[in-house]
Structures are given as C-alpha cells and as structure tokens.
C-alpha cells in the first residue's frame, strides 16, 4: 500500500509541477513579448536607441533563462527564438526600416513556446 501511495503522490506532484511550469513559461514569454511590443512602439515613434536597448535587455533576459528552457523545452524551439532575437536586433542596428515581420516572427516564436506547453485538445492530440 505504501508503494502505491508513493506512486499516487509522485504522479500528483508531477502533474502539479507541470501546471506550475505552464504558468511560469506563460509569464516569462508574456514578459518578453511585452518588451518586444514596447520596442516596436519606441522604434515607430523614432526612438531607435531606446528600442535597441530594450530588445538587448529582452535578449539578455531570454538568454539568462536558457538553462531552464534547455532542460524543459525542445532545443530547436529555443534556438528559433534566439535566432529571431538576433535577426530583429541586427535589423534595428542597421538603421533601416525594420519590417513588421521581424517583430511578428519573434513574438510568434515566443507565443508558440507557451502555446506548446498549454493544455489544449490540439496540443495533446
């Protein structure tokens, strides 16, 4: 009976941790997405330097989160977000017109990470 109780407890703990993980990933990706959206607004308003420093800060945040993401997420998804960050940053620094697609790509990559973890019929099946 003891073994079964340990198994039930363990399975409940894993499920609870997985729910905590969903909340954590969502809050982190939401925070990063908000940074990107704010940088986009700053760039449109002509403050390119502030936009660059905000994207850099957001990228640092993302990179500081890497040990967690590499343990919990598929490495290919993590690499896609990192690539999208560097692409946006290089476009901002080149002082050209930054296409909306660069922002959208990064935001979509961030959203897809939290969407992958979210419990929906689609993601389960």
């Amino acid at each position: 009976m003891k073994r079964e109780l340990v198994a039930v407890s363990l399975i409940l703990i894993i499920f609870a941790l997985s729910l905590v993980n969903i909340r954590y990933v969502e809050s982190r990706t939401d925070m990063l997405t908000n940074d990107v959206e704010a940088a986009e607004k700053l760039f449109i308003n002509g403050d390119a330097d502030a936009a660059i420093s905000l994207v850099k800060e957001s990228l640092d945040n993302w990179l500081s989160w890497e040990p967690y993401t590499h343990i919990m997420l598929r490495h290919s998804e993590v690499d896609l977000v990192t690539d999208a960050y560097y692409e946006l940053l290089s476009k901002l620094q080149s002082e050209e017109e930054v296409p909306e697609a660069a922002y959208r790509r990064l935001k979509e990559q961030l959203r897809s990470i939290s969407a992958m973890e979210r419990i929906t019929i689609g993601s389960i099946l």
Binding site: A7, V8, I11, I14, H70, I71, M72, R74, H75, S76
Partner: peptide, 17 residues
C-alpha cells in the same frame, strides 16, 4: 535536441502507473 526530461518524465509516470 530533445531534452532528457522528455524521456525521464514519462518513464517516472509510467512506473507510477
């Protein structure tokens, strides 16, 4: 490219089952 957690976690869950 697949985190080890993706292999370890299902094994723990299966053993519990």
């Amino acid at each position: 490219g697949i985190p080890l957690m993706n292999g370890v976690l299902p094994i723990i869950i299966l053993l519990c089952c």
